[in-house]
Design a binder for these strands. Structure first.
Lengths: 228, 228
DNA sequence: GCTAGGGGATTGTGGAACAATCCGACAAGA
DNA sequence: TCTTGTCGGATTGTTCCACAATCCCCTAGC
């Protein structure tokens, strides 16, 4: 009998109006992760407040939200700047990714089947985007794929942690010139990993995942140090 | 020649004064994690601002910081409340803890020896506090012990993630009446785990850690559901 | 007993003002 | 020329105030 109410409750979040600070943060977040705001850019309170027609108070609250997500850094009396990731940041992101995605793989046997299906669905989206050469979408789908892998664990906190990491990773991708060549080699390995998961080979999947992430980390770190 | 400057640069963080919002958040955080502010308490902007002699704007910025750490929840047009953890939250915290601490254990062989020493040091502090019956300190040292285990990974993000989780856990502990009987049985297992780590038995340590956290989770969840 | 509506209290947001701080420019001295 | 001291503009940090939006509780009316 409560099925209807549960279904409605799932959409509860959608009707909660967002505060102005949240909306502002959302807009800025998009601009940052899409690369339209280059890392290191100073976000002037006055200029941004005027551009978005919000008060400084509201803008400062939005800055706090973004600082939490590590998309901007707040320097006292100097203002907020779009975060600049250095190679050690990227390496660290991959360390945490490995821990979270491994947790997902290990939870495979006790997880709901939908979670594994979500992994396959994300993979399909990535390959569909690859087929038409839409590399921006490929990058997005790849991130969603890995979120789905970690999501196997069924842990809200792991999901949130991964979401933050993926947002940070976009910052790194924005710093790498050719994102197209970056993702292509790894799609095949996504396919391999998914196959292992679907066959229930947890240990093999874990080995594959570890090697995958270590390789990806090396590629990106090299691109960052070599490119800049 | 640059050695001196490098050493000074390492202490750079210490001279950055904290903003009023950060100081306010720090004070509130202590009160919350020490249990002086009961979960569910409403934090009125006006009353708190007057008590701490800060303006509402500053207080609101502090609230954003605390909301990030999940110590308070912000409900639109209703205000902020000290977070109330339910059993599913605690269970989820332990899921993430397991992932992070496992990452530490697995990094054992490639970690600096100081990190393992930090684990032993935290354990010693806990046992010293136990000897004099200071159970509050035991609880704190136990949290530090587990942070040290995760810290073996040497990842700043893992460290920060664990620190947040431990702050959340204090909220749960505050809800459990007798914290004294809660920690005692697990000190022995901390000792066991440390011994396995020091002997380099990664796989055994991982098994012990997994069992440990699952048992601890069950104890706390039972205390929460039974006590309330 | 239940619904509808009103009033008070609190938060959300904007705006202004002043202090504190930073940064660059310029000048003075070695 | 290089370093150091000082000044002034620009920006942030913080406070205060005002008003709209919203929520919650209480009461009136059915």
């Amino acid at each position: 009998m409560t099925g209807i109410f549960d279904a409605l409750a799932a959409d509860r979040g959608r009707l909660e109006r967002a505060s102005a600070a949240q909306r502002v943060a959302e807009v800025l977040r998009e601009h940052i992760t899409e690369g339209r705001l280059a890392p290191g850019t100073r976000l002037s309170e006055e200029a941004l407040g005027e551009a978005l027609t919000v008060s400084r108070n509201t803008l400062r609250e939005a800055f706090r939200l973004l600082a939490d997500q590590r998309l901007v850094v707040h320097e006292l009396n100097r203002g907020v700047f779009v975060r600049i990731l250095d190679p050690s940041d990227v390496a660290d992101i991959y360390t945490l990714r490995l821990a979270l995605e491994t947790a997902g793989v290990r939870a495979l046997h006790s997880a709901a089947p939908e979670r594994l299906a979500a992994v396959r669905a994300a993979l399909d989206r990535a390959e569909a985007a690859e087929a038409i050469g839409d590399w921006v979408t490929v990058g997005t789908a790849d991130l969603h794929f890995h979120q789905a892998v970690a999501g196997i664990a069924g842990s809200p906190r792991i999901d949130e942690c991964m979401a933050r990491l993926m947002a940070e990773l976009r910052l790194a991708f924005a710093a790498v010139p050719s994102a197209r060549g970056l993702h292509a080699p790894f799609l095949r390995r996504n396919e391999t990993l998914t196959g292992l998961l679907e066959s229930g080979a947890i240990d093999d999947a874990e080995v594959e995942l570890t090697g995958y992430l270590n390789d990806a980390r090396a590629v990106i770190v090299r691109a960052m140090t070599g490119g800049a």
